[in-house]
C-alpha cells in the first residue's frame, strides 16, 4: 500500500513563461523526480489555498523538470499566475492512464488541439517524436482564437520546420500578421484521411465535441478517437466521486478515453 494517500511533494517554480495574456507555463522542479506517462495528470497545490488537476506539457522522458501550462480561470490558477520564480508549489501524482502509445504503432496519428488544450498534446508530441519511425505519419492540427492566443509559439515554429511532421494551424479571428487558415479547428480537418488513422483530441469541451463529430463524419471509427476528458478531478484516485463519467472515473480510468468508451454517457460535453 502506498503509505499516505494525497501527500504532497514540494516543487520549486524554476521558470515562468508567459504564453498568452491568460496562460503561463511553469517549469517545476519537484523534490523527488516525478515519472509520468504522457496523458496522465497531476494535482498541483497552492499553499493554504487548494489544488487543481493539470496535465504536464513537457517531455515524459524527463522526470526532474516538469512543465505545467496553466490558464487563469479561478482561485487556484489566479494564485499560480501571481507566483514568482523560486516559490514553492505542491505536486502529487501522476494519476490516470494516459495515451496507449503502443496501440498507435504503425498508424497515422492525428493530434488535434484547441487553445490551451495543446498542453497535454505537446507532451504527447514529445513522446511521439522520440521515434517517429514507429508511426506511419504524425500530424498536428491546432486552432486558437487569435494568433496571439497560440501557445508555445517557439515550439510551434520549430514544428513548422520539422519535415517529418505535418502541421496545420488555424485561428478563429485573424489579424494583419496572419497568413494562414481562418476558421474553427474543424475547418482544417476536412481532408483528413481516416484510413489506418487514430486521432487524439484535446481542447475546450465544445471544440472536442465538434471535432469528434467531424472525425466521425469523415469516417474515423469511434474507438480510434481519443479524448482527454477534464472532469473536475479532485482526489485523483477514484475515491472522492467528483469526476464520474457514466461507469468510469476520469481520474483513474481516464483522463484519456476513446469516444467508443464514453459515447453513451450523458453530460460528456458539458
Amino acid at each position: 500500500m502506498k503509505s499516505e494517500t494525497y501527500k504532497i511533494t514540494n516543487a520549486v517554480v524554476e521558470d515562468i513563461i508567459t504564453e498568452t495574456s491568460n496562460i503561463k507555463t511553469f517549469v517545476l522542479k519537484p523534490d523527488k523526480g516525478l515519472e509520468f506517462k504522457t496523458g496522465q495528470f497531476v494535482e498541483l497545490a497552492v499553499k493554504g489555498l487548494g489544488e487543481a488537476p493539470f496535465t504536464p506539457s513537457s517531455d515524459p522522458g524527463i522526470s526532474e523538470k516538469i512543465d505545467m501550462t496553466i490558464m487563469k480561470v479561478g482561485l487556484v490558477t489566479d494564485a499560480m499566475h501571481n507566483m514568482k520564480k523560486g516559490e514553492i508549489l505542491g505536486i502529487r501524482g501522476p494519476y490516470g492512464q494516459g495515451y496507449p502509445i503502443d496501440d498507435f504503432k504503425g498508424k497515422r496519428v492525428c493530434v488535434i488541439g484547441g487553445g490551451v488544450g495543446l498542453a497535454p498534446l505537446r507532451s504527447l508530441l514529445y513522446e511521439l517524436m522520440h521515434d517517429l519511425s514507429r508511426f506511419e505519419k504524425v500530424s498536428l492540427y491546432y486552432g486558437a482564437k487569435t494568433p496571439k492566443d497560440i501557445v508555445y509559439k517557439n515550439y510551434v515554429k520549430k514544428l513548422q520546420q520539422e519535415k517529418e511532421l505535418d502541421l496545420f494551424l488555424t485561428v478563429d479571428q485573424a489579424d494583419d500578421s496572419w497568413t494562414g487558415n481562418v476558421g474553427v479547428v474543424t475547418t482544417i480537418l476536412e481532408d483528413l484521411n481516416p484510413e489506418n488513422s487514430i486521432a487524439c483530441v484535446c481542447g475546450p469541451p465544445i471544440m472536442m465535441k465538434f471535432s469528434t463529430l467531424k472525425l466521425l463524419e469523415i469516417g474515423f471509427k469511434e474507438e480510434d478517437i481519443y479524448l482527454s476528458m477534464e472532469k473536475n478531478m479532485s482526489c485523483g484516485v477514484g475515491k472522492c466521486g467528483h469526476c464520474r463519467i457514466g461507469n468510469y472515473y476520469a481520474c483513474k480510468d481516464g483522463p484519456v478515453f476513446t469516444y467508443a468508451q464514453i459515447k453513451n454517457f450523458d453530460e460528456i460535453w458539458d
Binding site: 497552492v46 499553499k47 493554504g48 489555498l49 487548494g50 489544488e51 482526489c235 475515491k239 472522492c240 466521486g241
Partner: peptide
C-alpha cells in the same frame, strides 16, 4: 454516500477531508 472534498489547511499543503454532497 462516499463523496468528499479536500481542503488545504492554512499556510500549508496539509489537508482536511470533508464529506461532500452531489
Amino acid at each position: 454516500c462516499h463523496c468528499f472534498f479536500l481542503i488545504t489547511k492554512e499556510n500549508s499543503f496539509d489537508k482536511l477531508r470533508s464529506w461532500d454532497s452531489c
